[in-house]
């Protein structure tokens, strides 16, 4: 089932204006649908109440998986599956396993985190998410309210009294 979202949004040109508006909306207890911007706005996350991303925890787990795959894999191959003597060295030559173990740690962490990022954010090749306003990727910052959560008249009034340059409406494919 495709749900549609009716959005009321205000357009801003300055980062600090939109941060002030977000702070004001939160203090009034208004539910903010999302904030859109052409650049990451530093200082917005705590004001908006965004939780810290857990991507780094996922990255650590992927990395650990890489470490274990490489180290245990090489250990099994050279001591159990097909032991060969290279230059009179022991079968389980731990120091010479270090470079590949390191490389696979980095490889697993990087691929895992990148894929997780796109999957969690609902992005991928060919994904055509609805864009709220074409100017977001250029120079405008947008503060959006969902009509199901905040009454549209109240949202419009709030945006007009909080420095929004324009107040617009749009229906997004959710």
């Amino acid at each position: 089932m495709k749900k549609r979202k009716d959005i009321v949004y205000g357009v801003y040109s300055e980062e600090h204006d939109i941060i002030e508006a977000v702070r004001e909306a939160r203090s009034k207890g208004m539910e903010i649908y999302d904030v859109y911007s052409p650049i990451p706005i530093h200082g917005l996350d705590p004001v908006l109440g965004l939780k810290e991303s857990r991507l780094h925890i996922a990255g650590f787990i992927y990395g650990l998986l890489g470490t274990l795959t490489a180290f245990l894999g090489m250990s099994w191959i050279f001591t159990r599956d097909w032991p060969i003597i290279f230059g009179g060295k022991p079968h389980w030559a731990v120091p010479s396993f270090i470079p590949i173990t390191f490389e696979l740690t980095v490889l697993f962490a990087a691929i895992g985190m990148t894929v997780s990022f796109y999957v969690v954010s609902g992005m991928g090749f060919g994904v055509d998410n609805d864009v709220l306003d074409k100017r977001i990727s250029d120079d405008k910052f947008c503060l959006a309210f969902d009509n199901d959560e905040v009454d549209s008249a109240e949202a419009k009034q709030f945006l007009q009294s909080n420095k929004a340059e324009e107040v617009l409406e749009k229906t997004l494919k959710a």
Partner: peptide
């Protein structure tokens, strides 16, 4: 990839 400029996406 369907980039929208959402605050959460920028954070991640």
């Amino acid at each position: 990839l369907g980039w929208t400029g959402s605050a959460k996406h920028w954070q991640r």
